[in-house]
Design a binder for these strands. Structure first.
Length: 272
DNA sequence: ATGACGGAAGTTTTCCGA
C-alpha cells in the first residue's frame, strides 16, 4: 500500500499536474493540502476518470484539504474534534488496503498553520492549534492504533531539514517552540517515516518560489508522514518526489510518498 | 531591500504563504 501527501497550492491550477502524477505514481491514498477551493468546485469527475474517489474539506481562497483514494474511505471527520477552528485544515478517514471489510488504517491529512512570524497572532494560533491536535491525537491513537498522520506540517525536525540553518534560526518553521510541539507528537507514539531510511542529502519538500530556491537547492523539509507504533515495522520505503517541482508552474511543495507492507503481522494482529 | 514569486480576489492593490 502506498500513501502520499502533497501541498498543491491551488488544486484549480495544479489539477493537471496531480492527475499526471497519479498516473505515473498510482498510490492508494493521496492527501492534498491548500486546495484553495470550496467543496462545490472540487473536480470530482476528473478524479473519477482517473480511478479515484475523493473526500473534500474545502474553503474559499485559503486552506482546504482532501483525501483522494482508489477505494472509498469511511468514517470521515473534518478538523480537530473539540478544537474550534474556522479554517479547513484537517480531514481523517478509515482507508482499507484492499476491497475487504474490516481492518484498515486511519489516515489523517493535515495542513498545519504557517504561523507567519514568532510572536505574531498567527504564531499564537499555530501553538494553540498544535496543542489541540496533540490532545485530540492522544485519544485518536487509542481508538485507531494503526494510524498515519501526513501533510504539510510547516515545521522542520532539526537543522538537517533546513538549507540555511544559521540564517533560518528562530525563523518560522524552525523555532524551538515549533520543534518542541513536533517532538511532542512523536512522543505520542509516532515515527517520521523519512528518517527510518537513508535519504539523499538536502532532502527537502518545499522550496521558495523566489530567488530560484529550487534550482539552488535552497529548501526545507516541512511535509511529513508519521506512522504509529503499530505500523512502524510495516514501513518499507519513504521518499520525496522532486520531479513535479520541475514542472512549469509547479507547486512550491513536492509530494512525499510512503510504502507500507500491510501483509505482515504487527503486535500479533493482522493489519491487512 | 517589511523585497523576491505565485495564487486569489477582483480591478489595481492587498493579503498570504514559509
Amino acid at each position: 500500500m502506498k500513501l502520499a501527501t502533497w501541498n498543491v497550492n491551488s488544486l484549480t491550477v495544479r489539477l493537471p499536474q496531480v492527475l499526471h502524477w497519479l498516473k505515473a505514481n498510482p498510490v492508494d491514498v493521496l492527501a492534498l493540502q491548500e486546495l484553495k477551493l470550496t467543496d462545490d468546485k472540487f473536480p470530482t469527475q476528473a478524479f473519477a476518470q482517473a480511478g479515484y474517489v475523493a473526500q473534500c474539506f474545502g474553503q474559499k481562497t485559503y486552506n482546504g484539504v482532501a483525501i483522494v483514494s482508489r477505494i472509498p474511505v469511511t468514517h470521515v471527520v473534518k478538523n480537530i474534534l473539540q478544537f474550534a477552528d474556522d479554517m479547513a485544515r484537517v480531514i481523517s478517514a478509515n482507508c482499507p488496503s484492499d476491497g475487504c471489510d474490516g481492518a484498515g488504517i486511519r489516515v489523517i491529512g493535515a495542513y498545519f498553520p504557517n504561523g507567519q512570524e514568532p510572536g505574531s497572532d498567527k504564531f499564537e494560533y499555530k501553538m494553540a492549534w498544535l496543542q489541540g491536535l496533540r490532545d485530540w491525537l492522544r485519544t485518536e491513537l487509542k481508538t485507531h492504533p494503526h494510524l498515519v498522520l501526513m501533510g504539510d506540517f510547516n515545521i522542520t525536525f532539526d537543522d538537517v531539514d533546513v538549507w540555511d540553518p544559521v540564517g533560518m534560526k528562530d525563523q518560522i518553521c524552525c523555532t524551538d517552540e515549533e520543534r518542541y510541539h513536533l517532538q511532542a507528537l512523536i512522543a505520542l507514539g509516532l515515527h517520521d517515516a523519512h528518517r527510518m531510511f537513508g535519504q539523499p542529502p538536502k532532502s527537502y519538500s518545499w522550496w521558495d518560489y523566489r530567488n530560484n530556491g529550487f534550482r539552488r537547492h535552497r529548501g526545507m523539509r516541512i511535509d511529513h508522514i508519521l506512522v504509529s507504533n503499530a505500523l512502524k515495522h510495516q514501513v518499507t520505503r519513504c521518499w520525496i518526489d522532486k520531479t513535479p517541482r520541475q514542472n512549469e508552474r509547479p507547486s512550491d511543495h513536492a509530494p512525499v510518498v510512503v510504502e507500507l507492507d500491510l501483509l505482515q503481522y504487527s503486535d500479533g494482529q493482522m493489519v491487512v
